[in-house]
Write a protein that binds this DNA or RNA. Sequence first.
DNA 1: CCCCGGTATGACAACGGTGTCTTATTGGAC
DNA 2: GTCCAATAAGACACCGTTGTCATACCGGGG
Lengths: 334, 334
Amino acid sequence: MRVTIKDVSRIAGVSIKTVSRVLNKEKYVSDDTRRKVEEAVAALNFSPSLAARTLAGSRSFQIALIYDNHSPYYIHAVQEGVWNRCREEGVRMLAQPVDIDSPTLAQEIGGLIDETHVDGVILSSPVTDAPAALEELERRRIRFVRISPGTNHALTSSVFMDDVQAADDMTTHLINQGHRRIGFVIGHPNHMASDQRHFGYRRALDRAGIAYEPGLVRQGTFDFESGMEAAEALLKLAHKPTAIFASNDDMAAGVLSYAHRIGLDVPHDLSVAGFDDTPLAQLVWPPLTTVRQPVRDLAYAATDQLFCPDPAIVHQRLQHELMVRGSTAPLRKS
Amino acid sequence: MRVTIKDVSRIAGVSIKTVSRVLNKEKYVSDDTRRKVEEAVAALNFSPSLAARTLAGSRSFQIALIYDNHSPYYIHAVQEGVWNRCREEGVRMLAQPVDIDSPTLAQEIGGLIDETHVDGVILSSPVTDAPAALEELERRRIRFVRISPGTNHALTSSVFMDDVQAADDMTTHLINQGHRRIGFVIGHPNHMASDQRHFGYRRALDRAGIAYEPGLVRQGTFDFESGMEAAEALLKLAHKPTAIFASNDDMAAGVLSYAHRIGLDVPHDLSVAGFDDTPLAQLVWPPLTTVRQPVRDLAYAATDQLFCPDPAIVHQRLQHELMVRGSTAPLRKS
DNA sequence: CCCCGGTATGACAACGGTGTCTTATTGGAC
DNA sequence: GTCCAATAAGACACCGTTGTCATACCGGGG
């Protein structure tokens, strides 16, 4: 029924163990033998049983990607990045959604590891900051890499981008266009990134010698709705902002929507900037100036680190990119 | 190091085999023994090795979800549905992205099955219609269920929704609001659903006694850009449509965007309808009237069928839902 | 009282590979 | 020519479960 190493070894005229050696690219196999085995493998279209390899060997050729993020775009990008690196390595990816607030989180992760013997784990934000998850992984002494962790940076290897710098860059972009009154919409309070983006905004203002005005800053929750509300509050001010920087694209879309509704012309009456460069950024009019998070690359780099034989703790920062589109423009001299 | 059945059996004071029986919920275990084993399992926090179960037994407690769809929303919803059903069953889900145009598609799928011994496969559209994939699965005699297949309906079990009826319903909704000149933007030619939605549009017109005008129908490609272009073409007609029905939300957003740019008031000057009910539908102004595809439910139902012990071929149709929002309105008497 | 089917449990091989150890064969340094 | 390290390949146990078969007990019908 199933094709096994035994069949391959028979065809190639060598021992089972030698076939195993070829499969695992071990040293001490003659070129001639290697070729014979490879031909037999191809002829039989043989794929080794992962279950058997896992049971007998010390590797499982599987890693787990654990996530709890409700943005399909983000998850999709992460999966793609991890998957791409896995494919190069001939390793399977187990995608594992979890609920970081679940009281059984540690148990679920522990069970996953015991059942599947995964060789390593990728943690995607915000699971990166769930203490229960981190403790469980530590206890099991399994290697893991975190994508965009918010806390405990020293703990493990991680890859991330600099949210502070990115928000600073965007704010500076607006300042360079002549804006002085720049509104800001803070992200969801649960997200580490929200604080960092807020801080980057302040830092850029400081450097430009512009006073930070709390009245120009509103709390949002990362959704469209909250962007609209923030825009309404900001644009009803007596001394209105000439630009609004929202901490993510959904909220920026909300700002845009409200601005249109009250008849403002974006970008000439009001510049609007977002963050994340989701597809949405190009599905609104005008297309949003925003910050591209290299999510796919982060995921790829994280997986790469997981496969790296050197177990040193490494922190890798990837570069963000300012995507300047139609929603921001130089301040009109009025 | 690792906790095994042996440890459990020692603690519980029974044989290895008996523990196995409890784990697999087999008959012929006394209540007393079962309880003892369950206590030992809990005490040791034992999770059985999937690799060993797979190797020794006839099941692998894993299924594969194979997809090649570039819409993150769709994939995410499918994964969620499949995952939810798997979790109930205590089965792992292997998410496997593929490229349906790859010449090695069959080999990849074959390799996946050989390596992982998955118990079954869920095929998500459009992999559902890749002959190479179907042949390979047939050859391996593995059970699989298809989500929204476009062809070969008789071949295997499947779950789907009625795209024709949904497009018919939406068109009828517009007709009921008094519209007679209804533009239509066809979806990507590679997608089976495109034809069906187009056909549903015609059917509704027919039934209402409205002539089908090819001039009111444009080819699109499911993306924002093509929606804008189609809108431009349609709205430059001497005898303009009063409503435009786009085959998906992205294109509808494009229509909306173009309409705004030329100063039309949606929905009073023009009604716009989409299809799919992606989150985008509520991130544009006004929010889109669209059709909700029950993607998550489809995926859940498909997985349920996969687990169903009865191997009969079943076709299950799930109900769509018309989401009437702000982008459509009764025709203004002018 | 004996036999039998239903219930409850254990012994043991097998699943398909890898880890470890052993053995044989080279080719170069002395 | 001898010795040794490097190279090449095989024998065999073992990984942690499940499938199969054997065994023992129990209660009821003849």
